[in-house]
Design a protein around this nucleic acid. Sequence first.
DNA 1: AGGGTTGCCCGAAGCGTTTCGGATTGGCAA
DNA 2: TTGCCAATCCGAAACGCTTCGGGCAACCCT
Lengths: 341, 341
Amino acid sequence: MSATLKDIAALTGLSVTQVSRALNDHDDVSAETKQRARDAAKALDYRPNLSARRLASGRSGIVGLVLPPQDRTPRDSMFVQMMRGLSSAFSRHGRLFVLHAADEGEDVVAVHRRLIDGGSLDGFVLIEPEHDDPRVAYLQGRGVPLVMHGRDGPAPDYPFYDIDNLAVGRALTQMLLRAGHRRIGFINGREDMCYVAQRRLGWERALREAGVEPDPALHEHGQMTESLGALATLRLMGPEGARPSALIAGNMLIAKGIYTALSMLGLKVPQDVSVVVHDDMLPGEDLLAVPPSSGTRSALAQSWEPLAAALIGAIEGRALPKTQHLGDFEIVEAGSIAPPS
Amino acid sequence: MSATLKDIAALTGLSVTQVSRALNDHDDVSAETKQRARDAAKALDYRPNLSARRLASGRSGIVGLVLPPQDRTPRDSMFVQMMRGLSSAFSRHGRLFVLHAADEGEDVVAVHRRLIDGGSLDGFVLIEPEHDDPRVAYLQGRGVPLVMHGRDGPAPDYPFYDIDNLAVGRALTQMLLRAGHRRIGFINGREDMCYVAQRRLGWERALREAGVEPDPALHEHGQMTESLGALATLRLMGPEGARPSALIAGNMLIAKGIYTALSMLGLKVPQDVSVVVHDDMLPGEDLLAVPPSSGTRSALAQSWEPLAAALIGAIEGRALPKTQHLGDFEIVEAGSIAPPS
DNA sequence: AGGGTTGCCCGAAGCGTTTCGGATTGGCAA
DNA sequence: TTGCCAATCCGAAACGCTTCGGGCAACCCT
């Protein structure tokens, strides 16, 4: 089997204790000893036994993410991206990142609990925050480190990485306002998602700032799928007079549905209807399927490193200067906006 | 913290040893004692510490899958399906299934090695077998249990779940032969994938059985993407005379590309060109994007349970009656075949 | 009655690591 | 010289679990 501390101790003539401390870079080990231990470790190709470490120290070096059950996630490729990004960020920090898919019937909190009790995981990356998220309550209650991808409320009491979704909603709306639109529809994501509420708020605020009272009938929401985009568009475009002259899509899938529905209705973008869309920039995703659209874009990939750093900091009990991060987004013009007809 | 064996021992008046044996259902514990231990465990909400267990027994109860690096996997949703399926299958067996994405630069074998040495994982589910797969060699060399989704060669020496890809290739070809086609193009997956070779073999065999010598120029292969489907179609359909009158698509994405390219060329399915396609049936995947196509379908979901059972059997050193499974596929007729014009 | 078998149980060792407390130096000030 | 401090080191205990080897009845067989 693999070499153990004992082997290194035997080879170097040190004690197991000192080797352990040397390899973990404690401060009461001489520089020379540290080097000797490290050399021997390399020579023997030593790999610490994580189970033993965990048992003794309470930490295993493994962190994880629990994929929420059900297929609430129509964008599988985003998860794979996320997996990859987080895996590599954590492995740069010498940690192992691992993913577990919760079972359909299972309670998400119970899954986290199993993982902690089993003693395998040191901390969690959470995604898709809900309002008063029960996972957060549970983990905080047990003192288990966590970081959130997204956030609940403007300033939660945990580390997170998020973009300013209110600003996104506002920016999208303003792009259309500037072109002269006043009736602006918004096809948004699931109502219980925090970012969805934020974006809606941004939409409302931008409208009010322009002296337009937001019409709740123009806000549609649901699972972010192509069919939501199509159905919501048909609904919004139904009554001729009340029709919005522009649409905001919560993401590319929705946008795709919008384009499909509009072309069914014989409406052209941007001549008849302007369209803007927000999305993460996913390298390699086949967005060519939807016509180029103006709107906002955020770079998901920026989040992995800060999330990893924050979680590791929390696990090691180090106070980090900054654990709450706001990523930025950029505005792209791609010709899907025109003045209202 | 969580309750330990010692707590249960104290509560029941048994020894720690006996409690451990009772809960693990050893056979030298009386039925009554077992029950008493189980009751106490439930009452105290006992969760075994996996690290301790692993340390003592060499087994952690965690199995994993390493996602190959790079984006060799255009079909992310398939992986998510797989994750979900395997997670739930293993958790039914009281095991924890976990996924780790290999880093871009990283050697896949090295990743497995890290996971074993760390002492965290008991065994692996492998996917996407290559010829003489180095992962298999390494794991077998170290005596680490594995199961394969797919297989290398007709009868490898490890547990696997696969479908008969030769038969799939043959069935697809025969569907077209029966309609009278003789020049049948095949747009297949990456050449180094085992199943790709098998399907090609099936195609060749079916043709020979019908007295047609397979034309290597009619076999295209590459990453299974929409653009491969489109480009390969354009290539195959280039020289007017040598054109195939029917096409086989390795999966739905390829088929989609085929449909796109054919419509660009002004060719209609099935009047001008017949198309058949094989794919896994992925619930919820948006296959509506491609017109309904005849061909073969296999149910990926059938594989999780056998894979899980086989891996657990291997870990526990039990000899299972059956560890190599061949799933079946069905043939669907959906109107994309017509006699050659 | 003696010897063997069976059923049930327990003590203690050990898995590989961390960590607590103490031990051993040498140097330096008093 | 004595006392004290910093710098290094080490032994032993502990983490929670499994397992090896043995013990003690109660039973059956001859």
